[in-house]
């Protein structure tokens, strides 16, 4: 179920990127694409009945069943990289607005 939701989010983001003509909406679609991707990555590591991979005073032995911690570490990196690209995209959007006066690509005219 979760993996289907992740694929739906991915496709929603891709649809938005292909059809939207407003700079801010393109950035939002890019973020939806990345959220779907991160959700899919985490879902690959799930084990039914597994615990969170942290040793605590309750789950204190290594003989218990844990979920896979590696996809969670990969998602940490992927989220931060997404934040970096979004920040750059928004700064470019501000520059585009100052240069052309609009956020719509069709009204911008020249190449």
């Amino acid at each position: 179920m979760l993996q289907y939701a992740a694929i739906v989010l991915l496709m929603l983001g891709l649809y938005g990127l292909l059809t939207q003509r407003n700079i801010i909406k393109i950035i939002i679609s890019l973020n939806i694409l990345e959220i779907g991707l991160n959700l899919f990555i985490v879902s690959v590591g799930f084990v039914d009945g597994g615990l969170a991979p942290i040793f605590t005073s309750v789950n204190n032995s290594s003989n218990l069943v844990f979920v896979d911690p590696l996809p969670q570490a990969l998602v940490l990196t992927a989220i931060v990289i997404g934040v970096g690209t979004t920040a750059l995209g928004l700064a470019l959007a501000k520059n585009i607005y100052q240069k052309y006066g609009t956020f719509e690509i069709d009204e911008m005219g020249e190449e």
Partner: peptide, 10 residues
Amino acid sequence: YGEADVSTRV
């Protein structure tokens, strides 16, 4: 989904 076998992975 949910049947990942962690013991075969890194």
